[in-house]
Each structure stands twice: as structure tokens, then as C-alpha cells.
């Protein structure tokens, strides 16, 4: 029994991981609910972007751009829906669709198992995600938004750190070989 696919060509060797049934849905739902409820009791948790971390993780693990972008879209739209009427549907959806696509595309080409690689990737994806949000807000919604602020680097580092640890936990949800 082996649920890890080894896909090879002449130059690459990648593994496509599978997860226990329902794990993706449960983890995504838990991330969304925690994102909505956590800051009520611990305001500083608002710096975290759990739905983004989940999108990145499953994108990197499944390594299928189509499922990656679709998962990102669903998580993003759910986050839009839970963010109140002032956030139009599609705001987070667009950003997470792109991140899901990028993560799964990059995951198919690079080793993303090493913690240092994961930290760098999460940091980069967080910045790209925020960049897309700013673009959408400025260009599509015509609302003022700063391109760069001090909190961005801090938030990216915090999320990258947490994500690196979180990914190790989520690795346990993979089906063993």
C-alpha cells in the first residue's frame, strides 16, 4: 500500500502526497473558523493568515495546479463571505486562487520539505498575497491602500515562522506509505 506517488522524468523526482479522507476540508474549515474567532479573544492573532497557510500547504503537497487553484478559490471565497459585507466576494478569492496555483506549480518543481525552504516560500507567498490584495483594492475597487508598510514584513515573518511549524503538524495528516 503506497499513497505517495513518485513521479519521475529524466531530471525530476517529486512526490505527490495524499491525505486522509476529509482532512483537507476539515483543516480548511478549522483555519477559517479560527481566523474568524481567534482575534476576538486574542487580538494579536489577527496578524495571522491561517487560510493562506492552509492554501500554501496543500498546494505544495498536492502539486497539482488545477486542484491548488480551485482549493485557493474556495478558501478565499469562504474568507470573503466571513469577512463582512464590506469585503466583496472575490477579494480574497482572487489572491488565494493565484497563490494556490503558484504554490502547486512551484511544489512540482522544488523540494518543499525542508523547513528553510518552507519558511522562504511562505514568506514570499505572504508578500505576493498581500500585493495582490493591494492591487485588487487599488485598481479594481478604487480604494486607497499603501503598497508597503512596516507591518507587512513583520506579519510575513510571523506567518512564515508559524507556517513552518504548522506544516510539520499537517505532515502528520498525510497517509503513511
Amino acid at each position: 500500500m503506497n499513497d505517495t506517488f513518485e513521479l519521475r522524468n529524466a531530471e525530476t523526482h517529486i512526490e505527490v502526497h495524499k491525505f486522509y479522507p476529509g482532512a483537507v476540508v476539515l483543516v480548511a474549515a478549522a483555519a477559517l473558523v479560527l481566523q474568524a474567532t481567534g482575534p476576538v479573544y486574542f487580538p494579536k492573532l489577527s496578524v495571522l493568515e491561517l487560510p493562506l497557510l492552509v492554501t500554501i500547504y496543500f498546494g505544495l503537497s498536492r502539486r497539482n495546479p488545477s486542484t491548488g487553484l480551485l482549493l485557493g478559490m474556495v478558501i478565499g471565497l469562504a474568507q470573503d463571505a466571513l469577512s463582512g459585507p464590506t469585503v466583496p466576494l472575490g477579494f480574497y478569492g482572487i489572491a488565494k486562487t493565484v497563490i494556490g496555483y503558484l504554490a502547486s506549480s512551484i511544489g512540482a518543481r522544488l523540494d518543499t520539505e525542508h523547513p528553510a525552504a518552507r519558511f522562504s516560500l511562505i514568506f514570499s507567498f505572504f508578500v505576493v498575497h498581500q500585493g495582490i490584495l493591494v492591487v485588487v483594492r487599488r485598481l479594481l475597487l478604487a480604494q486607497p491602500e499603501a503598497w508597503i508598510n512596516v507591518h507587512l514584513a513583520i506579519a510575513a515573518a510571523v506567518n512564515a515562522l508559524l507556517g513552518t511549524v504548522l506544516f510539520l503538524v499537517l505532515d502528520r495528516l498525510r497517509r503513511s506509505s
Partner: peptide, 24 residues
């Protein structure tokens, strides 16, 4: 158990790019 050698089974880049464009 699957082991595929000498193949690229990643879904077609063209297909996923089309899907990305459509979803966006």
C-alpha cells in the same frame, strides 16, 4: 502503489493555466 518512470504526469500546464484564467 504507483511508480511511473520516464513520464511527466503533472497536469498539462496549458490546461491549468486555462483553468486559472477562467477562475480569475
Amino acid at each position: 502503489s504507483y511508480r511511473i518512470t520516464g513520464l511527466v504526469t503533472i497536469p498539462s500546464k496549458h490546461k491549468s493555466l486555462t483553468l486559472l484564467a477562467g477562475v480569475l
